[in-house]
């Protein structure tokens, strides 16, 4: 069964109107987005800063209320789930800044086990403590970390604590919001491998939000590319990395630096020309038209719909032959 499904999801932030009592306005961030995720699978979400990736992640968990469409959790509309607070044990999130995600005044045992008092209120103190230590050990931290404070940790250790907090309620889904972009490269690999190991062990589904294409390639089964709040391409991992179809995806791929400096110097045309359109004033046509090398008047006037361009692949561009 489909674990998580979004149907025509739209998310926006309320921004205050001009006066104290005037109506607030909606600043739309994510438009008309649909996705579905099976248990045990990983969906990689890529896109540049400000494209709505993180907002999407929070809306999928209903940490931000959506402004349009719906999110289904195991076929159930999330807005109608009674006592969603308790059910949050099944869907967790880990964050980009691992240290900011831990309350500096709490011990790690308390941070990790705090959700249990909501999810499983009948546990005794001893049981809670045992679960916290167990969760810490599952992420590779020894039991003597339990009484430490966050300021004693390195970034990688702090992210592991974040993961331990996420897995303590035995979730089915974890939203990973750029979980490694604040970490050293060597630590990134450890955290990614830990996530993959936990995924295998617990049958977790992951939504892996990142702007790092190499990391997404390593962990994902499916890749979704977002641009200015819209999906422009969605494809299975191997097909996507073999040949990205949308010009925006191609531009993202081109922007990955070449490790060999001799070849890096010889590369041409990697930088995109043109302006990123403002969220406050979104373009009428294709979201990428202002920067796309192939854009025509058609692109600037009419927005291309997301359509099936190959079996299992979708893209939103006028110029992809099916």
């Amino acid at each position: 069964m489909t674990l998580l499904e979004a149907r025509n999801l739209g998310v926006g932030y309320k921004i205050p109107g001009p006066g104290l009592f005037s109506a607030s306005r909606m600043l739309p961030i994510v438009h008309d987005l649909s996705l579905s995720l099976e248990a045990g699978r990983t969906l990689g979400v890529v896109g540049e800063s400000g494209c709505g990736k993180s907002t999407l992640g929070r809306a999928l968990l209903r940490l931000i209320p959506p402004s349009a469409g719906q999110v289904l959790w195991q076929g159930e509309d999330m807005t109608l789930i009674p006592d969603l607070r308790r059910r949050r044990a099944e869907m967790q999130i880990i964050f980009q800044d691992p240290v900011a995600a831990l309350d500096p005044r709490m011990t790690l045992a308390r941070i990790v086990s705090r959700p249990l008092s909501t999810f499983e209120p009948n546990l005794s103190r001893v049981q809670v403590r045992a679960r916290a230590v167990d969760a810490l050990q599952q992420v590779g931290l020894s039991a003597d970390f339990a009484d430490r404070f966050p300021h004693e940790l390195s970034g990688g250790q702090a992210q592991r604590v974040g993961i331990a907090r996420a897995i303590i309620g035995r979730p089915k889904l974890i939203i990973c919001d750029e979980p490694v972009s604040a970490l050293d490269v060597s630590i990134q690999a450890q955290v990614i491998n830990l996530l993959m190991e936990l995924q295998e062990k617990m049958g977790l589904a992951l939504v892996f939000i990142s702007h790092n294409l190499a990391v997404v390639r390593h962990i994902s089964h499916e890749v979704m590319v977002m641009c200015l709040g819209r999906v422009v391409e969605q494809a299975p991992r191997d097909a996507f990395y073999a040949r990205p179809l949308h010009p925006y995806s191609q531009a993202l791929m081109d922007a990955v630096p070449e490790p060999n400096p001799k070849r890096e110097r010889g590369r041409v045309g990697t930088a995109l020309a043109g302006e990123l359109p403002s969220v406050l004033n979104p373009p009428r046509g294709c979201v990428f038209a202002s920067r796309c090398p192939k854009a025509t008047d058609l692109c600037r006037q009419t927005r291309p719909e997301l359509r099936e361009v190959a079996p299992g692949r979708q893209a939103a561009c006028h110029f992809i032959e099916t």
Partner: peptide, 28 residues
């Protein structure tokens, strides 16, 4: 706006619990 408050909401805490357990102790 800190992420640990968001984590607390993802952990099912109510607004009042967050104020008492996270916000006030950090203002102490």
């Amino acid at each position: 706006r800190r992420e640990f408050v968001e984590a607390a909401r993802a952990g099912g805490m109510t607004g009042w619990q967050i104020v008492v357990e996270h916000i006030v102790p950090n203002c102490i």
